[in-house]
Amino acid sequence: VGEIQRFLRDDGMVKVSRSIRELSFKIRHATDDYIKKHGKSPSISEVAAVLEVTVDEIILASDALRDPASLHEKLYE
């Protein structure tokens, strides 16, 4: 837990961290679903529409998704 909090703190998002974290998981799910259905990655406005939130919220939350492990997968895939 300390790790995640430090990560969010580093991202400067302390007070809004929990809801952002939740939304970031929803984004991940919605994105995976969309790819399964349409065979391509959704745009942020499409994700925002599915989750019924603003594009601003998607931007903030997707920043919390930043995760070095997935970056590595991408690079070496």
């Binding site: 942020i44 931007i59 920043d63």
Partner: peptide
Amino acid sequence: RMAMTCFITPLDPTIEEIS
């Protein structure tokens, strides 16, 4: 990071492109 993300938002990028 955030400022540049906001700057490109009107292009309606995918989450992957943003990242």
